[in-house]
Design a protein around this nucleic acid. Structure first.
Lengths: 412, 412
DNA sequence: GCTATTTGTTCAGCGATTGAATTATTTGCC
DNA sequence: GGCAAATAATTCAATCGCTGAACAAATAGC
């Protein structure tokens, strides 16, 4: 039932303006060329009078600005193009991963305006210390952002593990974290965020989820429903349905790493048998390729593997083919279940995509009933290594775009 | 991003009333006791003045009526309870299945007001003839409905197969249908439906999807996210997320029958190997239990199997245990992927649930990473055999409840 | 019979959208 | 160069629907 879903609560007089602010701003955000007020009127169905009034609010709140290059040329008064402001609210993205810390700032338009990566093995570091380092990096990011006229209105932290609604990291096995109360630990540091109604100061979420969100909002815009697979030590998936991340009942969706691909196969640390992770996880691939994994950190191992495959190393090629086949079995199951037409390989898989895609596609072709009518695209992620941090920061500014009324109420 | 999703288009002056009509009517529909106007005001956040105006519209359009038993007793003016009208718009549910045709009428409140089942082997019957019989049954249903003051405002047809957006049945393997243009075939018969803006006259959908919708709207209300598995000859699943059926990019989601449970196992007609259907499909179970399947139609075979299991027949019990284990492997994968907390066994599985649930739960417990923190419920469907027809009819009236403005515009 | 209490309605006020008229600014043609 | 056509954006009275407060209705308890 694809009904236009109504707002949850009461629709008051003022909601009308709130909804139309969001409608117009969203249109400006997704347009490929800066639209004029007249363009917006025809696109949204509102009258030009209303659009003018709404745009005036947005201009006053510095969420949009008028662009110099006119969107049209020809007879008639020239239109004034509207673009998202390159100053004003911005999102702070944070990421703790096994071998790096990342911080970035993304503006309203989705541009990455600041980026810092600190490479280090985080496994021996206590959570509180890791977060303290991250806060230090974030402080520098905030100052840099302020110099560009950007105000941080919210932060999102990506963690490779299970996170509950309150931001408690239940389990991040590869990081060695268990029951880490991130919000409480971060509350001990001076706040970097200017609170805005409707935008949570801090969201903690799974790295795979946030990387998928980053992919969703990357340029050029891709499909609105897809599966994003982050192949790290574990294998996580972010499921994007109709332009929204699907989190599951408790926010623990996407545990694709424990789909069974050989039900009577190798035992897995999850307690099951033959889980995907045992055949297509980073350690499994590296080991199968004959690389002594202990000598290398995860990202270097992946790069080395790509080098070997490039050079035609038989062991590497076979390891990648086997991993791709296992991945394909799992992905085919997901596609059968959810009827998705796009699968994005992210994280460590992105660099290995040239060798993983063919066997994945082969399994999809063999196992997906509907593949004959509708082809499935499998492609590497367009975002770089710290996709989750970018997606995290992007998720903050998307809230401003989706609910501009909160920011405008603040800005006066 | 669980933002309150705004309406897709422009929010005009009149949309406000439309949205609040839907809000108030939805509240009346989901309340456990007939709410008063005052109850609705506090529940929705609207003022009592607005609620009174909205309710007046709903009463005038005969979508709700005032109930006799007052919702409250005590000091103060007695409240007048509001309930969904038992006259007015109703939905027509149709179902073509392998061994029966079913027609039913469901009123606004979700009550089944008419029900006809015609048992026959439909495999040798041409699609046009099967639909003609269904139309005949529907005509009688319409007359019966009219006698109760019900007007049919839309129809939904459940088919055990893949259906595209236009209502074309691409493939219904167990029925022997391929590329059947249902809307065109039904257009040759006189219309039974009174057109209402916003309500499609005919929707054709997968039987598993509509059965899941029926479960969603069954009384008492259950969870808003769950997996509904219809175990017939094939195995289909309806995925309900946040109170809405998830259809996938092309409407072909839920093909759980082809999740791999033994990737190097038996070949499947889909082209893959070791698909769930080969281990937990009705034929597989019946054969494994030692019943000669040819002698029995599908529903009788299931009943017989339940009898044997009840009597302690070792072969039947083993067959059910093995099928349940295979089903559990697949369900565990789905739960890992989507983080659902409820699985409903419907269709042929409903009657076999006492024997299927334990092995399914065992596999979930062993393979689902998060099962330790959040238990998963596995239970049989509460609806009867023709759940899809009831769900189909229910999906029609749900549209009226979700968008009452269309009906009100018609009724004046 | 009076008061407290709760329900539901009435009504002036107001915010936001609408549609038509008006102003603003350019291109192209004579 | 000047004028008409075309397109963009604004202004303004009218209207729709929600709000808040006052008011009328109806009952229980004392």
């Amino acid at each position: 039932m694809s009904l236009t879903h109504a707002p949850a609560g009461a629709v008051r007089q003022g909601s009308l303006r709130e909804l139309n602010l969001a409608l117009v701003l969203g249109r400006i955000a997704t347009a490929d060329r800066p639209p004029s007020r007249a363009d917006l009127a025809t696109a949204t169905g509102l009258t030009r009078a209303t659009v003018s009034a709404v745009v005036e609010d947005l201009l006053a709140g510095r969420l949009v600005s008028e662009s110099d290059p006119a969107p049209r040329s020809g007879a008639g008064r020239p239109a004034r193009g509207l673009v998202l402001a390159d100053q004003g609210p911005a999102g702070l993205g944070l990421e703790v991963n096994v071998d790096y810390l990342a911080v970035c700032v993304v503006d309203l338009a989705g541009q990455v305006r600041h980026r810092t990566v600190h490479r280090a093995d985080l496994r021996p570091v206590a959570p509180a210390d890791a977060l303290a380092r991250l806060v230090e990096m974030a402080g520098a990011a905030r100052e840099d952002a302020a110099r560009h006229g950007l105000t941080l209105v919210g932060a999102a932290l990506a963690v490779p593990g299970l996170v509950d609604d309150a931001g408690l990291v239940r389990l991040a096995p590869n990081l060695g974290w268990r029951d880490v109360p991130v919000p409480a630990l971060l509350a001990e540091h001076p706040p970097l965020i200017e609170q805005v109604p409707g935008v949570p100061a801090l969201v903690v979420d799974n790295e795979a989820n946030l990387a998928a969100l980053g992919e969703l909002h990357s340029q050029p815009p891709g499909p609105s429903s897809f599966l994003h697979i982050s192949g790290e030590v574990g294998i996580g998936a972010g499921i994007v349905l109709d332009g929204a991340l699907f989190r599951g009942v408790r926010g623990w969706s996407g545990e694709i790493g424990h789909l069974p691909v050989h039900p009577e196969g190798r035992p897995c640390r999850c307690g099951g048998q033959g889980c995907l992770e045992q055949y297509a996880g980073q350690e499994a691939i590296v080991t199968a390729a004959g690389l002594a994994r202990a000598e290398l950190p995860a990202d270097t191992a992946t790069a080395r593997l790509a080098e070997l495959a490039e050079a035609g190393d038989a062991d590497a090629l076979r390891a990648l083919h086997d991993a791709g086949t296992a991945l394909g079995v799992a992905v085919a199951g997901v596609v059968n279940l959810l009827d998705l037409d796009t699968v994005v390989l992210g994280g460590g898989y992105a660099a290995l995509a040239p060798w993983l895609c063919p066997p994945v596609l082969a399994e999809i072709g063999a196992r997906v009933l509907t593949a004959a009518w509708s082809p499935v695209t499998v492609r590497p992620s367009t975002l770089g290594a710290e996709a989750a941090a970018v997606g995290a920061a992007g998720s903050v500014v998307r809230r401003i775009v989706a609910q501009p009324a909160g920011w405008l109420a603040r800005a006066g």
